[in-house]
Structures are given as structure tokens and as C-alpha cells.
């Protein structure tokens, strides 16, 4: 099993030096996500105005995959509309299930670096923690697949 491919520089960089891991001043939305099986947790905070994710941050504890994935996610969605953010989170969740096209992968930018986690079922929950939390926060009424 090739593990080096997903403990790549993008992931380790976001884990060691996360830009978005801090409490957020002026947040108007907040949700805590937890993986009960391993204890990984993040609290996601957003400032959403006029349908746009103006700012976002998270705090939490957990493995490099869960924490870096949340950081990468925030880089990607800050400044986007809520609809775009939801679209990206759905794309990410689909990527982890191994079902995206190359163009879609492009859209995910750095988050595409987590693609290979789809081969490690035990770690999928870590990678999607932040994204599930985002999805639920922005669209609480939607049915979560899975």
C-alpha cells in the first residue's frame, strides 16, 4: 500500500502550518463535527453575508488528514458563494468515493491532493470530517448521503 502519496507536501504543510486554524472573530455560523470512532473533531466557524462565505476558520484536534483537509477546504471556499461552496463539498465527497472526472478534480485545486485516501477506507472519515461539517452547516436540511 502506497501511503507516501497522500502524506504529501500539500497535506503535511497544511497540517503543520494551517492558515485557517484559529477562532474566527465575527463568525455568524458555527458547527462542531466529530468522528466518534477516533475522536477527531473540528469546530467550523463561518462568516456568511449575502450568500457569500466571506470568511472562515476552524479549531480542533485530530490526525493530520482531518486537520489538513479542513484547512485546505477553507482555502478553497472562502470568498465563494454558498452555492459554490456546497458544490465543492459535494465534489470532494464524491472524489473520496473515487467518482470524479479530471475536470472536476481540477476544480478542487489543492483538495485533489487527498484523492488517494479513497484507497484507505479506514481514513476516509478523517478526510471528509471538515467537508461534512461544512455541508451540514450550509445546508442543514439536505439529506446526507452515507
Amino acid at each position: 500500500m502506497e501511503t507516501r502519496s497522500f502524506y504529501n507536501q500539500i497535506l503535511t504543510e497544511h497540517n503543520l502550518r494551517p492558515a485557517n486554524k484559529h477562532p474566527l472573530e465575527g463568525a455568524n455560523m458555527e458547527l462542531r463535527g466529530v468522528n466518534p470512532s477516533c475522536g477527531d473533531n473540528i469546530t467550523l466557524q463561518l462568516r456568511v453575508e449575502n450568500g457569500v462565505v466571506e470568511d472562515g476558520a476552524y479549531v480542533g484536534d485530530g490526525c493530520a488528514i482531518s486537520q489538513a483537509s479542513a484547512d485546505i477546504m477553507l482555502d478553497l471556499v472562502i470568498g465563494r458563494s454558498v452555492d459554490e461552496a456546497l458544490h465543492l463539498s459535494k465534489l470532494f465527497l464524491r472524489m473520496i468515493k473515487g467518482k470524479v472526472t479530471d475536470e472536476e478534480l481540477e476544480e478542487l485545486e489543492e483538495a485533489g491532493a487527498l484523492q488517494d485516501i479513497s484507497h484507505m477506507p479506514a481514513r476516509v472519515k478523517c478526510a471528509v470530517l471538515g467537508w461534512h461539517t461544512l455541508d451540514t452547516l450550509l445546508d442543514p436540511d439536505a439529506e446526507n448521503e452515507d
Binding site: M1, E2, Y7, C38, G62, C63, A64, I65, R123, C126
Partner: peptide, 23 residues
């Protein structure tokens, strides 16, 4: 220090060294 146990176990898995992580 600085490395979550699940990451330790996953990286060791890449070296075919099998250990447990968690609670």
C-alpha cells in the same frame, strides 16, 4: 510528538509494519 497516532499507524502501514492506534 507532533504526529497523530492514526497517522503513525497509516505511515507504518506503508512500511508493512502493523500496529494499532486509537483508544
Amino acid at each position: 510528538d507532533g504526529v497523530h497516532p492514526h497517522d503513525i499507524a497509516t505511515i507504518l502501514d506503508g512500511d508493512n509494519v502493523y500496529i494499532r492506534a486509537g483508544h
